[in-house]
């Protein structure tokens, strides 16, 4: 006869504490991994570039990029380029997000709106707004606003589509609850449709944020005489690749920063989601 005896620890609390400590250690280990992967890549890049195993003209060592960054920052005109880009990004972002949310909610809530606008949204979405930039510039000139419009045009679609999906994914039982308890359309909008669609909507806004950054660089390359995209383009044309990399690093930092900001906002706005 076989017998399996599982020995429980004689001190359960100590046993669980040990387990807890172990899991904490693991957590720290994962954190180091996230930190080390970029550092390793950068170190590798540095070494390969300095030993000319990769062409330092195309891939200047990261340390020289940092030096260039400090140099540009101290010389003063970097911060003005960053500020103007930031201004356009934020302006374009909100110019796209707000109408996106509004139309998305309407599409999700009202069938006639859905059947009228959904085909239009679907048909217009694949058109890159960048391709329309010449027209946008003809209409609005080489102004900050024309860049904002370009960004807004790209940001609008994922936000609108996700918001509409968020609304139509609301369990019909909550619609019944609202109806049975006599919710008027204003209350329905603010208590059911808006909060109910928020989780999916926020995913769309997160996407829109990334698209805004992709768009600003390209837009400033095409038609601008300031901004990070302009900087990247000029340095590229003058073959000052260090400067170009500074621009790319700044954009990448923006993306990282905005993601964290939005995640934070998401936790605040959607406290019921665990």
């Amino acid at each position: 006869m076989e017998k399996e005896v599982i020995m429980a620890a004689s001190q359960p609390v100590a046993y669980e504490r040990k387990k807890w400590e172990k899991s904490q250690k693991k957590q720290n280990y994962y954190r180091t991994l996230t930190l080390f992967s970029p550092i390793t890549i950068l170190a590798l890049w540095e070494v390969l570039s300095r030993t000319a195993l990769i062409d330092p003209r195309f891939f200047p060592p990261p340390s020289t990029i940092i030096v260039e960054f400090v140099h540009l920052a101290v010389n003063g005109n970097l911060s003005s380029h960053v500020m103007i880009s930031l201004y356009r990004i934020l302006g374009g972002f909100f110019l796209g997000v707000i109408p996106g949310i509004l139309l998305g909610l309407l599409i999700g809530m009202y069938k006639p709106v859905r059947y009228t606008f959904q085909p239009l949204v679907m048909a217009l979405m694949p058109i890159p707004t960048l391709a329309l930039m010449p027209i946008i510039i003809i209409i609005f000139g080489i102004t900050d606003f024309s860049k904002m419009v370009t960004i807004a045009g790209s940001v609008f679609f994922p936000v609108c589509i996700n918001t509409a999906a968020g609304v139509s994914n609301i369990d019909p039982i909550f619609v019944d609850v609202a109806k049975n308890y006599g919710a008027k359309s204003k209350d329905y909008f603010f208590k059911i449709a808006l909060p109910g669609s928020l989780p999916v909507m926020m995913e769309g806004i997160q996407m829109g944020q990334a698209i805004a950054l992709l768009t600003i660089v390209a837009a400033e390359m095409i038609g601008a005489n300031s901004g990070i995209g302009y900087l990247i383009w000029m340095d590229y044309k003058a073959f000052i690749l260090k400067g170009m990399y500074v621009g790319l690093v700044i954009i990448s930092f923006f993306g990282y920063f905005f993601s964290i900001l939005l995640r934070f906002l998401q936790r605040r706005l959607i406290p019921w989601q665990k």
């Binding site: 049975n180 308890y181 006599g182 208590k191 909060p195 928020l198 019921w272």
Partner: peptide, 26 residues
């Protein structure tokens, strides 16, 4: 007022807000 079989409580409202829902709506 109807009491639904299941899932009738609204996930984005606290227990308190759920209980107050009808009163708020009217």
């Amino acid at each position: 007022s109807m009491i639904f079989q299941e899932k009738g409580v609204i996930p984005w409202m606290t227990v308190e807000e759920n209980v107050a829902f009808g009163l708020r709506m009217r």
